[in-house]
């Protein structure tokens, strides 16, 4: 397959509620620096429902999927690659408040059942501490937005770690219990993941 003909889709999952705005806010931040991105092949999209991710999972699209994660370390953004099954399968569903309880984990599982190329999906998870209705994001989550947007921009422009074909996460480095729902959960993480964590600048 000619990878140069592929498009890159940056999909921000979220809602207007508290730290669940993380995904949408990263898309907003990237939209503001759009000129720095390859104009033709990058799509920036906000989604409300995890199920709408599925139509983006195809052979022509590299998907960067951004979501808020309850339990994600508050000073980090986690990156998980779906091409490594042991990574995304560690995402666990929370009781979801999303589209009829179709969580991100269920959607990725359904995509896999439908033989869709989920290896083209990379998850970027930001910290979520509170998702109260129509509340502002927490200060740490807002900081994570900037860090995630910067790293994604570098990645899309080919300067980031994803541009390095030798860069991948080892199963040992996956958080043992990253759990995803409409609001993703990633807790109990105590492993070393040099490529998969973006530390927020202080």
């Amino acid at each position: 397959m000619n990878t140069h003909s592929r498009i890159t889709a940056v999909l921000g999952l979220g809602s207007p509620h508290g730290d669940d705005q993380f995904g949408w806010s990263v898309v907003d931040a990237l939209t503001h620096c759009r000129r720095a991105l390859p104009s033709i092949h990058v799509r920036l999209v906000k989604l409300r429902h995890p199920i709408d991710v599925i139509s983006w999972i195809n052979d022509q699209t590299q998907v960067h999927l951004i979501d808020a994660a309850v339990g994600c370390p508050i000073d980090q953004v986690l990156r998980l690659r779906c091409k490594v099954p042991t990574e995304w399968r560690t995402i666990e569903c929370l009781p979801a408040k999303g589209t009829h309880d179709l969580s991100l984990g269920t959607v990725l599982g359904t995509a896999e059942s439908l033989d869709k190329p989920i290896e083209s999906v990379t998850l970027w998870l930001g910290p979520a501490q509170q998702c109260s209705p129509i509340q502002l994001m927490s200060a740490r989550t807002a900081e994570a937005v900037d860090a995630c947007a910067r790293k994604l921009e570098q990645t899309i422009r080919g300067a980031g770690p994803l541009a390095d074909p030798n860069s991948h996460l080892t199963p040992q480095s996956v958080p043992p219990s990253a759990r995803a729902g409409a609001v993703t959960r990633a807790e109990d993480f105590d492993g070393e993941m040099p490529d998969s964590r973006i530390d927020l600048e202080r």
Binding site: I51, I54, S55, L102, T106, G109, T110, E112, S113, L114, D115
Partner: peptide
Amino acid sequence: ASGIELARQFPQQVNDGLQIKQ
């Protein structure tokens, strides 16, 4: 138990459903 299982049994119908939703 879930759409994951249904998609394994009826991929054509689930894909059709996703197409309609789109």
